[in-house]
Simulated scan of single mutants.
Amino acid sequence: MQKISLILLIHLILMFNASAQTDNSWHGKKCALVLTYDDGLNIDLTNVIPALDSVGLKGTFYISDYFNGLNAQINKWRIAAAEGHELGNHTIWHPCDGSLSGRSFVQPDYDLHTYDVRRMDNEILAMNNILKAIDGKSKRTFAYPCGDLKIHDTSYLDPLKNEFIAARGVKGEMLPMDKIDLYNIGCYTMNGQSTDEMIALVRKAMASHTLLVFLFHGVGGEHSLNVSLEAHSGLLHYLKQHENEIWIAPMIAVAEFIKSNRH
């Protein structure tokens, strides 16, 4: 009888520890969630930041300047950064491998297939300098343009890993803390999804105690990958209503937390 009681007690302790570990994985909440927005589009400043600010949430904005619009945006990005939004590095010219299928939009001068690692890394470092001039910060995260991690068969970010806390890719996945590759964090690219479809992803992350990263381009226009203002707003209001269950933070905060807390 005592042996059975001891086994039961050990089982209960293990179950409690497992539960406590799950509950505390993401600041005591069910999951972590990052809202990322690519390219530094004008709608980020006109549509997205006001929407985030209206519900008190913070986003991560991966900025590039392939459309030569950054100069006119600098003051607004500086204000956004001062208010807690993250400015991330998305290179200057957004080079992608134009040799791949569906890449007719890639301009010949910025075809990653014609780059070498040194040229790419110099461009990334230059963008870090630009961003520091805007927000004054040295710690940064990166997002791979088009999700391309390599030049030919070489990972171009490997020489720069000390320059970045983490990097976001484009693979659609949500993982627990101990399974996340901080230099290829998965995400879900949004294009035409409804509020309900996006909320379904959030609920899945909550149920699995994982990290969910959303990737937006257009929000109410300006990009071929687009979600409506209404769908985006519906997601934000759902997240705000469930803040007690979901840790919503910029990528850099989540990445630093992962580095400090996983074993």
Rank of each mutant, 00 (worst) to 15 (best):
D23N: 11
I74R: 15
L14Y: 14
A82E: 12
L225M: 14
Q241F: 09
P108R: 09
H152D: 12
I258K: 04
V170F: 11
V170W: 07
H242C: 02
W77L: 03
K137A: 07
Y183C: 01
V170Y: 10
L157W: 03
Y115P: 01
V227P: 05
D148Y: 06
M206H: 10
A18K: 14
Y110F: 15
Y156L: 00
G218V: 10
I92D: 00
L149W: 08
L182A: 05
I43C: 12
Q241W: 03
K58H: 15
T114I: 06
A205V: 08
L33N: 02
R262L: 02
I4L: 09
W26D: 00
A167L: 07
K139D: 00
I79M: 06
L12E: 08
K161W: 05
A231V: 06
N47F: 04
T91F: 10
N191V: 15
W93I: 12
D65H: 07
G98P: 04
S155I: 07
I13K: 01
T22W: 10
N128C: 07
R203Q: 15
G221W: 14
V170P: 00
L131V: 02
P50E: 00
D153Y: 11
L57G: 15
S99M: 02
P145R: 02
D111G: 06
A167R: 03
L175W: 01
W77M: 03
M251T: 13
D158F: 08
S25R: 12
D39H: 09
S194D: 08
L131H: 02
D148K: 06
L8E: 05
H27C: 06
K30M: 13
D53R: 11
C96G: 04
L35D: 05
D23W: 14
R262T: 13
T195H: 10
I248Q: 00
S208K: 12
N129T: 14
H237W: 06
E197H: 11
Y110L: 05
H263W: 02
H113F: 11
L14K: 12
T141C: 09
E86L: 06
C96T: 03
G147C: 10
L215N: 15
G69T: 14
I74N: 02
D109I: 10
L125D: 02
A205C: 08
Y62A: 13
N244P: 03
R168Q: 14
G98N: 01
D178P: 01
D23T: 10
F164M: 01
L8F: 14
V170K: 07
G59A: 10
I49A: 05
I248K: 01
L6Q: 11
W247M: 01
S64E: 00
A231P: 02
L6D: 11
H27G: 09
P95K: 03
D181E: 07
L70H: 13
A207K: 12
S260I: 04
R168L: 10
